[in-house]
């Protein structure tokens, strides 16, 4: 499996107190644990991104728990109210414990 690649679409500038939308996507098969291998009939073990977190300047802003019913390449969009300039950090947690993260800077004026 190719290494999951996180992608972020977030504004670089915002005005103070503005509510901005952030869109995220990570490439991941999100194996549900319900599918069977066509050849062997064995159930393909579950492997999904089970959690997503967004922090701003170290403070948690938004968090999501995912179950196998989330589609492959999980897309997630949400809103953040920004008061000062800073940096977003996005983290995805895989079932095997691996974390994938990406950062995005924002200037507030």
């Amino acid at each position: 499996m190719a290494k999951p690649k996180p992608r972020i679409r977030a504004p670089k500038k915002a005005s103070k107190g503005e509510v901005i939308e952030i869109k995220t996507l990570i490439s991941h098969p999100m194996e549900s644990g319900q599918r069977k291998d066509r050849k062997t009939g064995e159930i393909i073990p579950r492997k999904i991104i089970n959690a997503f977190t967004c922090t701003y300047n170290g403070q948690e802003v938004f968090k999501a728990d995912f179950h196998p019913a989330i589609s492959a390449n999980p897309y997630m969009s949400f809103f953040v109210k920004v008061k000062e300039s800073g940096e977003f950090e996005f983290t995805w947690v895989d079932d095997d414990g691996t974390t994938y993260s990406k950062k995005s800077k924002l200037t507030v004026n």
Binding site: K63, A69, S71, Y75, M76, F78, V80
Partner: peptide
């Protein structure tokens, strides 16, 4: 179970979108 979204006052708006399997 599909998903749980955890908001905070910093969210500004209690709105989220994703894609799911049915």
């Amino acid at each position: 179970g599909v998903a749980s979204f955890h908001f905070s006052p910093l969210s500004g708006r209690a709105q989220a979108s994703t894609r799911m399997r049915l």
